[in-house]
Design a binder for these strands. Sequence first.
DNA 1: AAATCATTCAACGTAATTATTGAATGTATC
DNA 2: GATACATTCAATAATTACGTTGAATGATTT
Lengths: 221, 221
Amino acid sequence: MSITNPKQALYEQFAMVAKAMGNAQRLEVIEHLAQGSRSVEALAAKMKLPTANVSQHLQAMRRAGIVTSERDGRFINYRVSDESVLAAFAAVRLVAERQSAEVARVVHEWFHRRDEMEPISRVELAKRMKKGLVTIIDVRPPDEFQLGHLPGAINVPISEIKSRLSLFAAGRDIIAYCRGPWCVMSFEAVAQLRSKGLSARRLEDGLPEWKAAGLPVESGL
Amino acid sequence: MSITNPKQALYEQFAMVAKAMGNAQRLEVIEHLAQGSRSVEALAAKMKLPTANVSQHLQAMRRAGIVTSERDGRFINYRVSDESVLAAFAAVRLVAERQSAEVARVVHEWFHRRDEMEPISRVELAKRMKKGLVTIIDVRPPDEFQLGHLPGAINVPISEIKSRLSLFAAGRDIIAYCRGPWCVMSFEAVAQLRSKGLSARRLEDGLPEWKAAGLPVESGL
DNA sequence: AAATCATTCAACGTAATTATTGAATGTATC
DNA sequence: GATACATTCAATAATTACGTTGAATGATTT
């Protein structure tokens, strides 16, 4: 374990990063932080976990250098320290997606035949937004919406989608998005909308990927 | 731990991949396998580890879907199951490189001031190869060389470089490469060559990256 | 069929990881 | 300064990971 040769030392460092990502809870934290910086408490509330638990996961990730923290009043806000972290997350996700039949199975079983929910690409959506042909709904909770969302998107939290189904016009295409490509909420939103005969599709990715692609983002109210 | 909701299940799958990469020995195995398929014994010999140990690491990675195996006679050859695995490895490495001062420090200390060894890029090398301006040396062991190397490269294993220093012409640029960007051998080769007043540089990456970029590879003798 | 050889398995001890609990720390507010 | 509150620390217990050893498996060769 002692650092005797440089090769070993480097591999240890790389392994530390991978190990920090090798936990389901921590990956979920990373996905939340991909939306922007969050306090420990805010993360704990989102994930319905004890604060101390989340705090420890955050510290583990800080030791590996994949998140950083900054005090703001009595809160401590964490953020991913670099886009390379999100790239690594995406790369790991891709491996799982390609290699594991288990992932494909889970997606299939829970998301009601994914092929019927062909996602729309960022590029295609950007084009259609210019022509004003689409209604974009952001199905994330209001606090996340306020911190940043797609231009012109309306916020319909997944919890309220049933009660607001009547508001959507039948003739327009509706595009739903949320946190990322594996975020459950947009799948559910599309399923709900389609069950009412509306034309709905998911955005292929979520807000982080949209921002990362350099496309415009609105924030505030 | 039981798979109750799909989100959790997916994160568990992603975490499994990251966890499989979260070990220094396994990362080294991946780097070896990036060169091509290898038997358990061959890997164990390279890494100077017990066969059973390497076997167990390989099985752990197979469970995560990042390597696959195939029997050939009495050997079992393992290989990385997909390029996405190498991409994930590279992404993890980049995170470590960007975030960890420790990595920068180790590289600095052990590789004798890296800035004096400015690496040459793949693109630049490809250009200069066309003009015939460079001598390319592959400092990996002969067995790896035989399985595939850069066109026109000559094999000078790092162990023999001292005894073959007199063979190099003073007027020509020498480019050394080995397994990948963090492979120690090419750093050492450049240091040796420079100590004799020769003009030597490292290729920025190694053979796997060269292949991945679609550039030509020679094999056999 | 016996021998050989690569790989895997089983069992063991040690170490690391994880979640949980309650106390401690440090900052802002009254 | 006292209080409230977000975060971290410390201690515990349960689980999993890691490396080592020697035996078992499975395919090839003699």
